[in-house]
Structure formats: C-alpha cells, structure tokens
Write a protein that binds this DNA or RNA. Sequence first.
RNA 1: GCCGGGGUGGCGGAACUGGCAGACGCAUCGGACUUAAAAUCCGAAGUCCCCACAAGGGACGUGCGGGUUCGAUUCCCGCCCCCGGCACCA
Length: 859
Amino acid sequence: MPEYRPQSIEQKWQERWRSGRAFEVTEDPGKPKFYCLEMFAYPSGHAHVGHVRNYMIGDVVARMKRMRGFNVLHPFGWDAFGLPAENAAIKNGTHPETWTLENIAHMKGQLQRLGISYAWEREIATCLPEYYKWNQWIFLKMLERDLAYRKRSSVNWCPSCNTVLANEQVVNGGCWRCGTTVTTRELEQWFFRITQYADELLDDMTQLGEWPDKVLTMQSNWVGRSQGARVTFALESNAGRALPPPQQRASGSDAIEVFTTRIDTIYGATFIVLAPEHPLVQRFAGESPDPAAFRAKVAKFTSQDRSARLTGEVEKEGFDTGRRAINPFTNEPVPIWVANFVLMEYGTGAVMGVPGHDQRDFEFARKYGLPITIVVQPDGETLSAETMTEAKPGAGRLVASGEFSGLDWEEGNRRMTEAARQRGIGHGTVQYRLKDWGISRQRYWGTPIPVVYCETHGLVGVPYDQLPVELPKIAAFSGRGDSPLAQIPEFVNTTCPECGGPARRETDTMDTFVDSSWYFFRFCDPRNADLPFDPEHVGYWGPVDFYSGGVEHAILHLIYSRFFTRVFRDLGMTHLSEPFARLLTQGMVLKSGQVMSKSKGNVVDPDDMIQKYGADALRLYVMFVAPPEKEIEWTDAGLEGSFRFLARVWRLADSLCDTIGGHGIPAPSAVALNDEERALRRKTHQTIKRVTIDLDPRVHLNTAVSAMMELVNELYAFCSHTRCGPVSEDSDNVGVVERPATIAVLKEAVEALVRMLSPFAPHMAEELWESLGHRDGITAAGWPEYDETVAKAEEIVVPVQINGKVRARITVPADTPEDDLRTMVLADAQVRSHLDGRAVQKIMVAPNGRLVSIVVQHG
RNA sequence: GCCGGGGUGGCGGAACUGGCAGACGCAUCGGACUUAAAAUCCGAAGUCCCCACAAGGGACGUGCGGGUUCGAUUCCCGCCCCCGGCACCA
C-alpha cells in the first residue's frame, strides 16, 4: 500500500487544473451563478499563513458551490499600489513597479501551491495602466456629477524631510524616517462627496442581513447620524433691532448658529462656546480692546496638538470673549466663550452650553463659574443646581421652560424645533460624523488624478480619449520634496485640452482605497478596453454572494465600496446598490498569542508547511481548529493531527479501492442490509446532512470537519468487525469482503466522504477519486445527497429525568407514541427504583420524544 | 460613557428552535503490534466523594448572584471580567 505522500499528488493535480483551465468560467444562463470573493491581496512580499487563511476559507465555499451545481466565479487580484512599494524604493533603490511585480509573482506561486481554485485568467493588478485608467474614468464621471471637488485641507508635513507624510508614516507624532515632530500644512486637495449618500448608506444597512452585527455597528458609528436642530443666537449688539430675514441672517456675522441634539434644554443654555477656528472669533479679536492678547489666547488653542484636541486628551480650557448673545427662547443675554473642546469640523463650530444637562458643559461651567439652570426634571427626582455634582442628561419633564414647561422632553424637543422654525430662528436638521473622502495623496505609487490646470481655462479634466494618464518612470526616489510627480517637468508641463495653451498637470495621486472600491466589478469583465466593465457582465455575476476578509476593513473599504456601487448605479451601469450580499470577517492567525509579523519574527510560511505536511493538511488544519470568524492560535501539533487524519482517510480509501472501485456494485438501497450495514449507511447519510448544512448555509467549517472525522472513525470500526480495509493488513487472514451489501454500503460511505472532503483537501480527494475508478474529476461528481429517511435513527435512547436529574435511559424505537413512551418509562426497573414508591405528580415528554421528565414529591 | 461580541475540561473547541454539557481534535495515560522505538490500531479520561480495589453509586459543574421552568450553556434581572468599535461629535 503506498503511503500518503502529499507533495507529488499536489503537484500533479495543480498541473491538471491549470492545463485543464478547471476554474475558468463563462456566463451560463442555464446555471445559477455564485460569486465567491476574498479581499484581494496587497503584494507585500511573502504571504504567511495568517494572510492565506482567508483564501482557504473562500476556496472551501467556492469548491463546494461548484460541486452543488453553481457556476462559480472565484477570481483573484492584487491591490498593487501603495506606500510600502515607495518606501522600499527610498530604502533600497528598487523601483516600486519592480518590487511590486516581483512580490506578486512570488505570492501567486504560494497561492497556487495551496491549490486555491482561482480563475487566474481574470487576475488583475491595480498598478497596471489597463486597470488604473478606469480609476481615472470614474474620477472624471464623479467630477462631472459634482461628486469630486477640491478644497483646502491639512496634511502631515515633515519640516526636515520637507515632504508630506501619510498618516501611517507618522509614528508617535514624529516622522517615520527622521523622527522630527510632524506639523500640518494646508493644501488644495480632492474629495469625493460620500456624504451625499450618508442616509442611504445608513438606512440600507437593513438589507445587509448577512453581514456581521459588528461590522454594521461600526459602519453606523462611522456615519454617525444625529438628529437635532440648528438654532440662531443673535449677537447682543443687534438685540434691540428687529432681526433681518433668515436668508440674510444665516450667512451674516451678526448671529451665531449652533447645532444641538437637545433643543428641549435650550432654556438652560447659559453660555455659548465657539471653536477657536470659528470665523467670528477673528472678528471679536479685532473688535476687542486688546486684539493681540485676544489672539494670543486663541493661538494657544490652535497650536495644541490636533489629534490630542480631537481625542480630548487636552484639558478643557476657554476664555470669555466679553461679547454676549441672546438666547432666542429666554431672550436673556448669555456670554460667548471660546474653548478648545469645540471642533470647527463638526456641526457649526459653535455650541450652546447647557451645564445642567451636559457633563462637559457642567465641568466647564463649574470651572469658570458660569450659571447652571435646571430645565429637565427626571421622574422621582428633584434636581438642584446648587447641590448637583454632575450633569443630568437624559429623560424627564421640562421645567422653567416658559410655555413648554410641563412637557415630556421628547415632546418638548419636537415642539421647540417647530417653534424655532416658525419664528425663523432655527430648524430641525441631521448632522453626520461622516466626512467627505479626501483622496489626494502626495505620493508616486498611485493613480494620477486626471486633471490639468490651464492658465486660461483653469481646472480641466483630461478628456476620456486621452486616458490613461500614465505614471512616468522615475529613476531615483529621495523621499524629499513635494509630491514625487511634481519633480518631473516632463510630466507636469503639458498642454490644455481645451485651448492647447500651456498647462500644468495635477501631481497628486489617488488614495489606494479608490482602487479597491470597485475591483469586484472589474473581475466580472477584467479585459474590457472600453469601459470599467460591461453592465451585462455585472448584471449576470453581481452581487458578490460571499465576501470574506479581515475585519480591519469593516469601515473604510466596505463603506467606500458601497458608495462606489451607488455611484455606478446612478451612472446607470448596475442595478445594484449593495455589492456584497454576505460578508464573513475571518479571524487572525496568532503565534504565541501575537499577530504574525516579519518584525516579530513569528511568521509561519505556508511553503514550509506544504513541504512538511502538504497543502491539504494545512488547509484542513486551518479550517478545523476554530470557526472561521475566530482568531486561531497556530500550533504545529494541530497541523500534525490534521495530517494524521488525512493519512487515515488515505489508508482507508486506498485499501478499499480494489473492493469498492469495481463495476456492477449494487446501490445500497437495492440490497438487504444487516444491522451493522444499516448502521453504517445511516451514519453516512447523517454525516452528509451535517456537513452539507454546516457548509451551506452555515459556513461552520470546523464542525463539518468533525463530522467527517466521526464518519471515518465509524468506518474503521466497521472495517475492524468485517476484517477488511486498512485493519486487514495486520491480521493473518486478510479479509476479503464478499457480501455485496457490505461492499455497497462501504462504497457509498467512502465515496461520499471523499467528495465531502474535497473542498478541504482537494488534491488528495481528486487522487482518491481517481483511484476509485472515476475519470471525470471530483467537481463533476457533484455533492453527495442524503436521504432523510435513511439518516433517521431507528432506535433512540431516551433519558429519563426525575425531578430534573437524569436517572435512567431507555432505548425505544424512534417515533414511539408519547403515551407508549410514558408507559414504558414507568414500567422500567431503574426508573421504579428511583421513584421508590413515591407518587408521580406529573410526567411529560419533550418534543420528538427526546426526553421524559417525571416530577415526584420530594421525600 | 455609548454600541457590538464573548467568558464551557490541561488546551482548541461542540451542543440546530429551552431537552443526556464536554462531540471532534491536541496533549496525557494504558493496551496490542515490535528485539526495541517510531508509525499504526484499540481503549481510558470534567472535578470531587463513598467503597480496600473493582463493579457500582452519589454530589458538584458552562464567569458571579438571583429569577422563570418539570428541565437553563441557551430565556429574564443585577453584577464581574476579556476582546473590538466609536467618543470633548454638542
């Protein structure tokens, strides 16, 4: 008997799949489609087992769906633009393109050695002009529809390297290369107007029933919708005059507009706080008695570390501007302060301070001696402004709120919003945390933004027929100066498409998240030279039915992809709004409790494991050790266990293939079976049922493997009794199985097992399938079917509880009627000894006769 | 602080809708085979207690404390801890 030697088998089948184009697909209206996708890879160099876990999970699903008759699209590609390539160029002098393409070649080899069933002919790499051309195309469409626009925004700047830094190049506030403290600079940058879709992105999450709750929550936090109102506080100098009409007032500087979610507390608003960057602050400074001192106080706040201010690590501080505004509900003047905790980026950059009902305002008021007024009294409490030690946010009844006093706070909120609207001093509104997506990167290795700046025509999009704007080759990377592209005159200097006059190219490139926001559509039509994709192809394959990847992409990538899908929809290129029907976020692979990384030196290279145990054992181990969503701790012993299991299956099938591989073996349903044969057949069908459901729809890959292990254990026991198969070798008289019924049930069991195992261990399964006498490959063999009546147990063991404790077990035929069951239980000797003569108060049978429960008097 | 997920043997993990807790595997121990070992095959095993031992029996046991129920890992209430997200967001 040949030993299980995975290496030669795996090479053999990988070569056959490749030459037979086994996983390439075309559209087939006669078959249901299934689009199975794993997040494509960043070609960082060598993939470790943590990276490839995701691909193995997807491959099990793809292979299983193929066997179940689906037309499966399972493509792969490379998220090939990005900073590490550029960093490598700066450090080692390798060109980003060379570095990237070499990494792709290596990682592709690793994936092929794992036997992942990709349609490699559809492979894409985002760094190729044939791909990024379409990023530019999409950008121009967005520009036309006012979904792309320019505005000033700040970037990280290293004053020593004299260059812009990406967020990930800022380490603890310093430059990644020289450690110099990073400052910020204002630059004109490009934005995508994702906020236009904020409501839709939030509301449509109800359609994402097959996404993890975790991801939905994260996205919903990210969009951060809050319902509230904008209210205008007039400046005191204008208090005597009648207010001008609202449209003039909103833009005028004689009033302050605040955003609040609790307009019902406005009678308790005893001060106003402006962000240091608020436009009125500069005016107040100019009008103040000592403008220099005023500005110095403002500058103290604006110079505070940006991120620290945003995260609230800086102590709350403020100062009184000396100016006052009129609370439009109380008509009382309130002081206007400036403080570092108010952010210009959110809302209107001005807030009303309600210290009685907002903890932050409370602390601020106590610190600076500002008045506190209670305007909401919670049920069963009487608050007092003098004695309270913290603010009381939340529910209650309005007090000291004029005509609104006595109302419940929610009702008050509605009425006061309406009152503000009627009086022209405010309106209900919705505020989002989500901001427009800044896509400009002052980097080389990305998609050039297809825009030129003409001296006479200003900003002009590059015409579609001139796409792509190709990245020029750069000889050397210094990591200094402006955008690398700005340093190449041949690139920068161009002509205006409108007038032919001199023009300057945009030198920023796009955020690489643009590349990944639509690649799943490109896979449907990867070589299209006229469009990003043909709507017909996406119409057939879309949406992605099963998408898996790391939870680190829960927000950005997944929300940008949802945004892009809606943009394509509005361009008439797809009917879809949601790109991914089902999402699985796979857990990480840890080694000694830590994430694998090159710097920690704890990476496990799949190639090493393949060499030692084979790709099949590696795949099986990773699937078996935990559910796909959970993180796993790598152990060599576990991998060895999986190898042992595969070798056990190998010995079983190999030793039986002469017996069960022949022709003319009857179907198990056509012959009379003895008890043992019937039991094996039942186990076979039970296993098929469990594995089928565990894989689809549940994707509980670990329990599917357990079920197959149980079947193998049962098969070994069966062989041991019938003296055949792998256990016959040891014995003196090798058992030759002659009973056709035995052969029939063995054949059914082994063939079902091999087929079910094939998504996990495809090479071995193909090899065994072939040695069992099949020619057409295991995918064509289809998924085994189970017969519910065969799977059903004939006899069941019914536990008997007496006062909640299991005291006996009786074996009865399945489907014993409840009444009979009661009688049998009460007649059972064991039960009677436990009853000990006590009277039965109650006896009940669990649904399907799974358990009998008796209640007796204690005694 | 708000939101989401979780806490089960020595370890990874099972348990579909409230019905035998610990499937399957790892590690461990024992037996068979072997001159021996490895490999393989077969078997044991939650904890504690009773019994000289075994057979057998009992108590306890799914983070903690209560509750509902004939019956709770599962449902409800109140806590503790761990992981993840958001957060001076008005």
